[in-house]
Design a protein around this nucleic acid. Sequence first.
DNA 1: CGATAGCTTGAGTCTTATCAACGTATGTGG
DNA 2: CCACATACGTTGATAAGACTCAAGCTATCG
Lengths: 238, 238
Amino acid sequence: MNTEQIRCQSCSISKLCLPVMLADSEIEHLDNIVKRRKPYQKDEILFRQGESLTHIFTVRSGCLKTFTLDEEGNEQITGFYVPGEIVALDAIGNGTYQSYAKALDTSLVCALPYSKLDSLAGQMPGLRTQLVKVMSNEILDDKALFLLLNKKTAEQRLGAFIMNLSRRYAIRSLSSERFQLPMTQVDIANYLGMAVETVSRLFKKLHKLNLLELKHREITILNKDNLSQFAGTSCHHY
Amino acid sequence: MNTEQIRCQSCSISKLCLPVMLADSEIEHLDNIVKRRKPYQKDEILFRQGESLTHIFTVRSGCLKTFTLDEEGNEQITGFYVPGEIVALDAIGNGTYQSYAKALDTSLVCALPYSKLDSLAGQMPGLRTQLVKVMSNEILDDKALFLLLNKKTAEQRLGAFIMNLSRRYAIRSLSSERFQLPMTQVDIANYLGMAVETVSRLFKKLHKLNLLELKHREITILNKDNLSQFAGTSCHHY
DNA sequence: CGATAGCTTGAGTCTTATCAACGTATGTGG
DNA sequence: CCACATACGTTGATAAGACTCAAGCTATCG
């Protein structure tokens, strides 16, 4: 099967993506503007900060990260994207990409020419509504992340990060209890604003508490409820 | 002059708000759905988390804060809104308000019934585009805030917060070098994820460095360039 | 097989939180 | 209009969480 030929009509993650709520005829219009490129290889760059916005991307398989560079040229990771998630929504405001996007794995993506998407949104109320909803949800997720980073300890942040990934996989009917971490611990540390050493030590601690297991990159959540509770609520479950 | 009677056509902040790029006739349609309520008093609540979304709000004067409550019932401030800014965009995704909104001062707001706004966006491409742009910019701002909180020291966060407020006032043609802080130091500490004591000490330090002055609630930025630099770049300007 | 990226572990340090106490405005009811 | 209550802000001492630095380990890949 040539994965590049999948269409929105038969895409397994269409219910998480823009086609939600669209009539079949409408999905066809959307499908017609989608470009399906050959897979991006690990570390390949999709777009760079400052380039002018041409396409919005949706992830079909694999995983992407977005990042900016600080004054010293260090990566500052701003997001990870798994299948069904939409990348570059923050570029619409002024028409230029606001970050770099890079594949963490071999990844399939759909590229939507923004100008065509915008005019289609003018013709299809369902698409307009869905686009606005997707953006609203991203604002909401960002605010949740903000609270997480702002108010929680390092161990809660890491626990919440893992639970968040797990939930995102679950929605996509992927295994939510055992999965491969698509990013390195260096990336996790960067994203969560901590030192790699801290991430390593905390994974060990979470294991000691029988909350999860980590072998190489494969993570197994041993006790979902306790892990959520650990991540969410009190500060002192020692 | 009755401020409740101001219309979009003559509103001084319309260029920051939804009417951007709309034709006069279109602005009139928008103006027709806007409800201008009597001023909210300090501490009055506009909406509560969990209530179903009826209106999107734009601030005309004063200042609002949005917040959620944690498990113990503590306020977790998620944003401050000054004139021209739009509140409740994160509620569109699932149709319920995702936070509380409260006036920090006597504040005038415009209330836009969301269903009407949405259908108007279907008829007016300019409005649709502007709505999407406003949302995209909010995503961008949230990501910038994320980087700020995640990678910077407490003093950089406070410096950046003040510069951010100053810039937002400047865009609105309000004085950007001397203005009243609309929120308490407790609120600032909460928002930036630090202890009140730290905020107090850092204001003192910023004063000692001749970057700003704070009397009661009135803040004067003494050296904009140095303050930005202090907030943005290096970690050790002692 | 060696080089390298990724991860682990330990020791010491620094930033920032916490706790406790006090100072200063603001506003309300008597 | 005063006295008290309360919200807001300041200051100091102490402690904890997380970072940095240094070193070593372990996979993986050419």
